[in-house]
């Protein structure tokens, strides 16, 4: 239970502009303790920009971000002690071995019994035999697994995952998903999860926030969204169809309305 039921992450009216282009447009949502939130949207919708605002590496133009009930700007270091991040886009230091790079990050996050924790995570992600290999020698998917292991080093209370499994094979994704769910249950982690693989999201997400052109255009549980956007009588979530439906709907609105449709696929429907 979180103290006084404060959401683990609470964002209100977040705005980020790059010159005249509005990448994040008045986004608000929250993540409760132990909740996994699927953060969906087409390419260029503003997902990574939003996450980078949560990390404090992009400065928003407006709005408020609270993590563990505290303002991000004033308490960044303290907050990040219990947050972690993983994206397939960035790597662990290339010239270090798997073990060394994890040791560096354990030190950065001041992890107690670092060695034990590292070996435990390497085992969990099935990369123990790679521990002395350099990061640059690893395959894409192996590197991604090491990055996910890194993101769990400090027993985070909030995990920000920006397409963490983008380069993994289906078998590994399947195992990765199971692991994340297992760890999430055991350690009560809250997770913000971004992916273009709808199956992944259906497996993990308790709730989905769908954004396009920087705006939240729908939110709810995967099943709620399916019923709301496709058909009321649906029994199973079908996020793939919901995704396509929502992207095209906002594309049309973009063309007819004042939005900027350039970031969505142009598909005649």
């Amino acid at each position: 239970m979180s103290k006084n039921n404060v959401p683990v992450l609470e964002v209100k009216n977040l705005v980020k502009k790059f010159k005249n282009f509005v990448a994040v447009d008045n986004i608000s949502f929250s993540i409760e303790e132990g909740e996994i939130l699927g953060f969906l949207g087409p390419n260029g919708a503003g997902k990574s920009t939003t996450i980078n605002c949560f990390l404090g590496v992009i400065k928003p133009d407006g709005g408020e971000i609270k993590i563990f009930g505290k303002g991000l700007i004033k308490n960044r270091s303290e907050i990040m002690q219990k947050v972690n991040y993983c994206s397939a886009e960035y790597h662990m230091p290339w010239n270090l071995s798997v073990y060394e790079s994890l040791l560096v990050y354990s030190t950065l996050y001041q992890v107690g019994s670092a060695k034990k924790r590292i070996l435990e995570l390497l085992e969990l992600f099935d990369v123990s035999d790679l521990r002395n290999k350099r990061i640059r020698e690893l395959s894409f998917g192996q590197r991604a697994r090491v990055s996910i292991a890194k993101s769990l080093l400090n027993h985070p209370r909030l995990l920000l995952l920006d397409e963490p499994m983008a380069s993994m094979d289906p078998d590994v994704v399947d195992r990765g998903i199971r692991l994340i769910k297992k760890i999430q249950k055991e350690e009560k982690i809250s997770i913000l999860y971004t992916s273009h693989n709808m199956w992944e999201i259906e497996q993990v997400a308790d709730k989905v926030v769908f954004i396009n052109h920087g705006k939240v255009i729908a939110q709810g549980t995967p099943l709620e969204l399916t019923q709301q956007e496709l058909k009321l009588e649906a029994k199973e979530p079908n996020l793939r169809e919901v995704f396509i439906h929502l992207s095209r709907r906002s594309l049309k609105e973009g063309i007819e309305g004042k939005g900027n449709p350039s970031t969505s696929l142009r598909v005649k429907s």
């Binding site: 990390l55 590496v57 960035y90 010239n95």
Partner: peptide, 18 residues
């Protein structure tokens, strides 16, 4: 620059380090 070349800077900046 090594942290830029090794695409590692973002992971460092995402940590509690100031």
């Amino acid at each position: 620059m090594f942290d830029i070349w090794e695409q590692n800077l973002m992971n460092v900046l995402a940590s509690p380090i100031t």
